[in-house]
Design a protein around this nucleic acid. Structure first.
Lengths: 238, 238
DNA sequence: GAGTGGTCTAGACCACTTC
DNA sequence: AAGTGGTCTAGACCACTCC
């Protein structure tokens, strides 16, 4: 015999999901506080949180640490086979992109970066860290490791937009080939902090290696996305 | 001032993650029961579960309903730009694939399927539901909606392997173009049951439309993956 | 029948945000 | 100072699995 009882947290989850779907709450609206929900539905606060965390993993709501729960905006469409940059892609979908440079530095490549960038011992790399936003809300943090000898002086240029364009315009470097790997994974603590989400919340990890026309590695990029911020779409011709 | 206290559930999560990484437990090994962990680490069972659910969302452990928590195997590599089928892909990675046909039927296309398959009112579709496994463990459930008039009699053939091959060999249909959309999302209840996971656990939803050489829609496929079962990798040439 | 995980309660204290 | 979410306790009962 199957258990036919519907748990309270599932009912609350569905109730809230319906309200959101029905448009009773708009993107970025704040939900009632956990204690209010607890009173309204006469269930324990732990149970309320269980429902909210379900909705979070569905991408319907997100939270700001110690500030509350909010309705998620629609996902951004991302086509990894398309070379279009973040700024253009977001704009094309009728939303407002922005970029914050978190840090930029020239360092001696770590062993790990040396492998990824195919560098020898002692060679230099740039490390560029950026946070990117849609409609004023952070959606990803990225760490871009750059082969410094291919683009000396890069850090003095404008780095908010497409690096691919900067490489082409300023350094005559064409990105000829890109390798991408991605999978769902929780955000590491440092990146979670920067996205103002709690460590361990679901995320999407995307890594990208870019090669120039001579098949040198130009950049190795790690992107830490909010898991509810994007949807991957692509087209393949055989 | 930042809070420097490390929560118990984070400590337990890290402890278990280290044990797994160190190889103290192999793929599909059962973890100690929640009550054993509670005793061992002298924390509440709710807190133990919090740690386990974190590990689940990281893809390090999975659970079988009411049976326990187990160590996850490595992720399958999946290249959406590569036409290679599931069976071949799994084999190529040194693992053992299998397929279970859950149901197959010929039905009048629903409105929703009519749109996806670009069919007129009253036209027929096949619905094929399969579960696919790696090393004997279910990793996905798929619902394949098929344009019946392009491949009449399909359901009488062997359907465990690559449909793309069946189309080519038996119906002279070449899959010329594929559109894929995917995003992290929890598994719907029905699919969760079939994968023996609890409804609402994290998953990956992948939808695929296949077009033939005349740009007719041949199939529309919904795949419900365990979120920890795969990693997406692809290469793009510009 | 013993053991497991799934659900739930009624509290508590804390760090942090908001006012 | 009041309110919020984050963490945690010490129980409880249930459905189901395993033996």
């Amino acid at each position: 015999m199957k258990d036919l009882h519907i748990p309270y947290y599932i009912r609350l989850r569905d109730t809230l999901a319906e309200q959101i779907a029905a448009g009773a709450m708009a993107a970025h609206d704040k939900l009632p506080s956990e204690r209010e929900l607890k009173e309204s539905y006469d269930i324990n606060r732990v149970t309320v949180r269980q429902a909210l965390m379900q909705l979070e993993s569905e991408g319907l709501v997100y939270r700001l640490i110690r500030r509350g729960w909010y309705v998620s905006p629609p996902r951004l469409n991302y086509d990894p086979t398309n070379a279009i940059g973040f700024m253009q892609n977001v704009s094309a979908q009728g939303r407002v992109p922005s970029t914050v440079i978190l840090s930029k530095s020239e360092i001696v490549a770590t062993q790990w970066a040396r492998e990824k960038l195919q560098l020898g011992a002692g060679e230099k790399q740039y490390l560029l860290r950026r946070r990117r936003l849609i409609d004023g809300h952070s959606v990803l943090v990225e760490h871009i490791h750059i082969n410094a000898k291919l683009c000396s002086g890069l850090l003095d240029l404008t780095l908010e937009g497409s690096l691919t364009e900067v490489f082409k315009e300023q350094f005559d470097l064409k990105i000829a080939r890109v390798e991408i790997t991605m999978y769902p994974a929780p955000l590491p603590e440092a990146q979670a902090d920067e996205l103002q989400v709690i460590a361990g919340t679901p995320g999407l990890l995307l890594m990208r290696s870019s090669y120039d026309q001579h098949d040198n590695v130009v950049t190795f990029d790690q992107e830490f996305w909010r898991h509810d911020a994007l949807q991957i779409s692509l087209q393949v011709n055989n």
